[in-house]
Amino acid sequence: MLRLPPIDYRSPQRLEEVIATLASENVRLVAGGTDLWPNMKRRHQLADTVVSLMSVPGLRGIEHGKDGVKIGALTSLADIVRDDKMRALWPAFTRAVASISSPPLRSMATIGGNLCVDTRCTYYNQTEEWRRSIDYCLKEKGTICWVATKSPRCWAHSASDSAPILCALDAQVKLIGPDGERVIPVSALFRDDGIDYLCKKSDEILTELLIPAGSDQDHCRSAFWKLRRRGSIDFAVLSVAAAVWTDTKNTVTRATVYLGAVGSSPVSIDVESLLVGQPLNEDLIKQVAQRAQKAATPMDNTDFAAAWRGKMANNYTHAALNEIAGLPVRCAPPKHGLTVV
C-alpha cells in the first residue's frame, strides 16, 4: 500500500494559529487533502508538519446576497453542485465543479484547495522511485525540464477546473495572512510558472471566494467545456471557460474566455477586441477560436496528443461560444453532464 511519509499533523481551531504554524520551515497547509495527500504519498511534495484548516470554524458555507455569492474556502465541491441557486445562477461554474474528479472526491475536496491545487505533469506526478529513474526534473529536485529540455522554466499545467471559469466570471478571493487580509481577482492569483504558480505568499490563506452578481445568469451567459478521456475521475487536458455580457440589442459589451490545462495558469484569450460592440456570430466566434488555439501551449505532459489538444482548443472554444450564442453546437459534447447526486 502506498502510504504517507511520517509527519507531524495539527488541526487547530483558530485561523491565526494555522497562519502562525505556516511560518515555520517545512510546513504545508491542507484542506480536503485530495491534492496534498496523493502528492505527499508520491513524495513530490514533502513536509515535516502539515497543518489543517478543517477544524477552523466559519470557513464553510454558501452565502447568497445581492452582490453575489460568498463561498467559504472549505466548502466542499459536492455542496456547491447541490446548491440549487448556484446551479441556477452560475451554471457554467457549477458545471465546472461537477466535472472535477468523482463524487466521493468532490465530497472531500474544497473549493479553496481547488483554486490552489498544484500544477501537473506526467513527469512530476509520479512516485519517488519513478522520479529517481528520470533523475527528477526542474519542478522537484532536478535540473532539466523533460518536457522541453532546453527550457529554463517548468511547463507543468494548471489543473484547477474552477480557476478558468472563475477568472471568466470576474470572481475574487479573500486572502488572509500574517499582514492582514486582501481581496484580489481570481485572475490575479495565478502566475504562468509551473513551479511558482500562485501569486500569494505561502502563509497566506484563501478564506473566501466571491462571485459577483454581475456575472450571474441574469447578467451574462457563460459556458464551460472540459476535455478528458473518460466521463469521470480524469483531470482536464483542456478546458474552455467563457462568459459574454450583452446589451438589450444583443451587442456584446464584455466578454472573457480562459483556457485551462494548456498553460501553467489559466490562459486568457484576448476576445474583447474582437467581440465588443458586435453581436455574436459564427464568423467572430471562428476568429476567437483561432486565437484560442494560438494561445494554448499544450505540452506532452498529460493525456492525449499535444497537437490534437491544441486543435481541440479551437473546437471547444467554438463550441462554448456557440452554446452561449444559442448557435448549433456541432462538436461532440463531453460525456459528463451536470448530474446532481
Binding site: P38, R42, L105, S107, M108
Partner: peptide, 26 residues
Amino acid sequence: ELGECGACAVLVDGEPVLSCLMLAAE
C-alpha cells in the same frame, strides 16, 4: 491509495469519502 479508483470508499456522516485520502485523525 491515491483517490483514483473508489475501492476504499466509505461513508462519513452519510457522505461518501475516499478513506485512502482522509486521515483517521480527522
